[in-house]
């Protein structure tokens, strides 16, 4: 059954898949951060994803960034998130321009929002885990809403 994007269920499904692939994520190592994902559109959505040791232990939709202490937030228009996930689905992994780092670096197609540089640096400290997490959508049936 297709899962709607954006939705809490979408990220919960990725969290479930992360748990199912525990060996892969244990090899990547401890990952401790609270990441925000903002999907911008007519109605914008903000999700707080808590990564804890080897799992994504909590996914919530929040109304304001201040509701949860986020280390950093990846913010992009809905269309860009869709392009990223479609690129992952096409090749099993993102094409070079669609990795989380590439999207959020020069050109700022995806914005990295943060108050504290310590929180910001966690994006890079856990990059391989966060990339592997979004790559878990490679064979997920998605309904774009």
């Amino acid at each position: 059954m297709a899962i709607k994007f954006p939705s809490v269920e979408f990220f919960q499904e990725l969290a479930r898949r992360m748990e199912a692939k525990s060996a892969e994520f244990e090899k990547l190592g401890f990952c401790d951060t609270v990441m925000g994902v903002r999907v911008e559109g007519d109605t914008s959505h903000l999700y707080a994803l808590t990564f804890d040791v080897f799992e994504c232990s909590n996914v919530r939709e929040i109304s304001h960034a201040g509701d949860v202490e986020l280390d950093f937030t990846l913010a992009a228009p809905r269309a860009l998130w869709r392009e990223m996930f479609e690129s992952i689905q096409k090749h099993g992994q993102p094409e070079p321009g669609y990795t989380l780092n590439s999207l959020s670096h020069v050109g700022d197609r995806m914005e990295v929002v943060y108050d504290d540089p310590e929180g910001h640096d966690k994006f890079y400290r856990f990059m391989a885990t966060l990339q592997a997490f979004v790559d878990l959508a490679s064979d997920l049936e998605i309904e774009w809403v």
Partner: peptide, 10 residues
């Protein structure tokens, strides 16, 4: 670079 940047950020 994804792997080296993790170490570097630490």
């Amino acid at each position: 670079f994804q792997l080296v940047m993790q170490d570097e950020a630490r």
